Computed example of a mutant assay.
Amino acid sequence: MVDIVAAEVRSRMMSGIRSKNTKPELILRQGLHAVGFRFRLHDRSLPGKPDIVFPRYRAVIMAHGCFWHGHDCHLFKMPTTRPDFWRAKIDRNRKIDARTRTALAQAGWRQAEVWECALKGKTRLPHDKVIDTCGQWLQSDAAELEIRGK
């Protein structure tokens, strides 16, 4: 299938997609900061440079985009253009996520994954509920947390 926009336009569109400071990540950061949690961002010393790092709680939160990480929700749809490329790219992202989770666990870090569908789209949860859930998890002893849309 042929792309509906020129290669230069597609390139410009794709270069505008962020890997840091995404909208879901900003929602989490602003909400957690507002309720008193302090954190570091994208700590390069940790495997996978987690989005939000809470050294005091030895915990990290990763805000995953449903498309880029191949989540099984309404926000993910495999592109019909160049499906082999996209399948390989998303599979690679999933493998990197698994390696990162394993390395963080072996280093003694607790991990939370907040999926984009929990913060936007038709299955989104109230933002304050997501923030409260993250806050309760940070103050608990639970090793893992996953928040996804309804």
Rank of each mutant, 00 (worst) to 15 (best):
V2G: 15
V2S: 10
I4N: 12
V5W: 14
A7P: 14
E8W: 09
V9Q: 11
S11C: 10
M13N: 15
G16N: 11
G16P: 01
I17Q: 09
N21R: 13
N21G: 10
E25Y: 02
L28G: 01
L28M: 05
R29N: 00
H33V: 02
A34Q: 11
F37K: 12
L41I: 11
L41P: 02
H42E: 03
D43E: 12
R44Y: 08
S45I: 08
L46F: 10
P47Q: 00
K49A: 13
K49E: 09
V53Y: 00
F54N: 02
R56E: 04
Y57F: 14
Y57T: 04
A59N: 01
I61G: 02
A63D: 01
A63P: 00
H64M: 10
H64R: 14
C66S: 08
C66D: 04
C66E: 12
C66W: 06
F67N: 11
W68T: 04
W68V: 08
G70N: 06
G70D: 08
C73G: 10
L75G: 06
F76K: 07
F76S: 05
K77S: 14
P79A: 05
T80S: 12
T81F: 06
D84C: 04
F85K: 10
W86P: 03
R87K: 03
R87P: 00
A88Y: 05
A88E: 14
K89M: 00
I90Q: 06
N93H: 01
K95I: 09
K95D: 12
I96K: 06
I96A: 09
D97S: 04
R101A: 15
Q106W: 02
A107T: 03
A107N: 02
A107L: 07
R110N: 04
Q111L: 15
A112M: 01
A112Y: 09
E113M: 07
V114E: 07
W115L: 04
K120F: 06
K120R: 15
G121R: 01
K122Y: 01
T123K: 13
R124K: 15
P126V: 01
P126H: 05
H127S: 08
D128T: 13
K129I: 14
V130M: 06
G135L: 11
Q139K: 15
Q139N: 14
S140V: 05
S140A: 05
A142E: 13
A142K: 15
A143M: 11
K150C: 07
